[in-house]
Amino acid sequence: MMLARVADSLYWIGRYIERAEHMSRLADVMLMASLDQSESAGQSARIALAAVGEPDDATAAMDPLGAAYDLLFNREDHGSVVTSISRARENARQVRDQITAEMWERLNLLYLRITAKDAEREFAAGSSSYLHGIVADLHLFKGAADATMSHGEGWRFLLVGVYLERAQLIARLLDISFGASRTPVTDHLVQMSLLRMACALEPYLRVYTSDIQPRHILEFLLFNEEFPRSIRFATARMEEHLKAISRHAEATGAAPERLAGRLSSRLEFADPEELAEVGAGDILKTVVNECARIHGAIYETFVAYPIDERLPA
């Protein structure tokens, strides 16, 4: 049992942390890819930019450093790393009594680091090591959460946020690359960049070798049971945490754990051969829609429920 507002904040800390990590990684991969003078580089940049919600912007793709800079430091941009980290910290401040000192200090340090006066100079001096540092710090935050916070309800809300955000972000990345009405990515280097954006290159290679193919990428990032950034893995964790949280809830009308369970089963029992026949468009669309429904159900059940229904008789 915890305050509804606190659960809400923890959930959003999870989402913002995951978003900040994903965006930092996209920026890093985009910059690395742009070192090559090839058509592949432009294509990688376009995928990254599309994944962060920029329209297919050819001028931005021509200036990957500027685009990465924006992705990091633009406070006007709701998806930027600085916005996500600021919001995660703002939420953490509101639930300062619920998270551990180790988590708070790690997140606060990240915030101080990215909002410091010389942050932009540091980035300009070495963008890759800067981004690497941000991602490593975000991992340290997650590690501190795992190692120091009780694995109870609050921790579960945090992780539901992380995994829901992750499922959505990976689904979006796949949709841009292989979705219906898109020209599927076939270039080897671009596919490598894509796997890097999902932090999946090496785990993928161990399963499928360096023979990189779109259907294998889809299979890996959608259905793999063990890879923590596959949508199936993320959904299964969501289901697990929501089930544990729901055990104590009084009202079960919207039942987010049931929605998560249904999505999880669908991914678990999907036939990879079907992907080859009908494409990934449908299943990716389902993932995005179901994640939105789970989010709504979490609010309806735990956070913004109607008071009248919960008053003592």
Partner: peptide, 17 residues
């Protein structure tokens, strides 16, 4: 976070009031 009903004070939690 607080609700008062019949002169009793409640807090809104994830499992109800």
């Amino acid at each position: 976070d607080l609700v008062v009903h019949d002169n009793i004070v409640y807090m809104k939690t994830t499992v109800g009031l």
